[in-house]
Design a protein around this nucleic acid. Sequence first.
DNA 1: ACCTGAACACCGTTCAAGT
DNA 2: ACCTGAACACCGTTCAAGT
Lengths: 211, 211
Amino acid sequence: MSTTTFPIQLSFVSERPYHHGNLRSALLEQAESILRDQGAEQLSLRELARQVGVSHAAPRRHFQDRQALLDAIAENGFARLGTELSNAFTSVGDSFAPRVRALAAAYVRFATDDAALLELMFGAKSLDPDGPMHDAAMAAFDPVFELIAQGQAEGRLESGDPERVGMVLFASIQGAAALFTAGMIERAALDQLTVDAITYFLRGAQPAQTS
Amino acid sequence: MSTTTFPIQLSFVSERPYHHGNLRSALLEQAESILRDQGAEQLSLRELARQVGVSHAAPRRHFQDRQALLDAIAENGFARLGTELSNAFTSVGDSFAPRVRALAAAYVRFATDDAALLELMFGAKSLDPDGPMHDAAMAAFDPVFELIAQGQAEGRLESGDPERVGMVLFASIQGAAALFTAGMIERAALDQLTVDAITYFLRGAQPAQTS
DNA sequence: ACCTGAACACCGTTCAAGT
DNA sequence: ACCTGAACACCGTTCAAGT
């Protein structure tokens, strides 16, 4: 009779002995799954502990309170978003316009795949300037600003602080995803909106006509 | 000895006898105030009832559950947003560009004045197509689409479904406000971003050059 | 070091009963 | 019609105690 006969959510990540050494990651993993399926409001520490198979007080060792757990999830989210944007940037050749489309598509995919996570990430108060998560969050968007710099170097975008120029693109894509996850527009309208937002951005952010 | 000696939150709206006839609006008003100050998560039905001076079961007569209260608040929000956008549209002369700026400014003001309310409005599941609140929500943005139609009629915007064209502007302004309320950018950056979003939209949505 | 069990002060929701 | 009070099944958080 081994001690772990029940195949309780082994999940993707690990097949280690459980209970000792990786409670923290088991909690995070399960919490992310609940978040995705039920939303942040339905995420209860007690239920989470139950599903992972520990007492309701055990999570306290790893997360001081509910908010600390949510913050940790959000931080994971920014890390994953960063790698996904980075992948999109490098996996599509090196011309400017396709990269813009790939980056926007990657962001929209991330946002719509796990709307509750994105909401959590943007709801995290720790995001504000000088907050502990601000740098990690901004780092995720580095590929966007790098791309803007490329567009400027190639004369396709007006000059100026890449963060300032890129923020316009970022805001419109973020807004588009928000309209979809809020249910205001349907999937097809989101795709159309994404294309339009990119088109208008590229035309609107061109250097002033010189002829 | 009158029955109402304590001046418990008389608030703005009414000075009617209280307790009889207007519990519903008293609850809504107080709930909106709590929402603005503390956020939706801190809004407890029991505490709300306490503050309004009724038993914890009394709200049930007017709101079947917590979600119904939140939905009602969101609906009020869309109504108020509608009138504020409408006011912005009509209170600034009738030229196109100033109207765009006024509308954007009004939206940003609404969003940043009461971020928790906007989050609630966009979080309301009842927003999706065929949901009970979708029409009321879309109606609030009528001034935006009307303005787009004006821009098209004056040859300043490319033709096409005004909803499609306007959605790009709407998304970018909404995204800008979201970046601010999330704490990612500061107030000054939001103002700059709003200006840039409008500029890029106006240039990018121009009819194709014909010469 | 890591986890448990009991305890405390809250919730939302329901329902019989009061006026 | 509108509200109350008790009850139920949950919470998050804390803390002494176990191994």
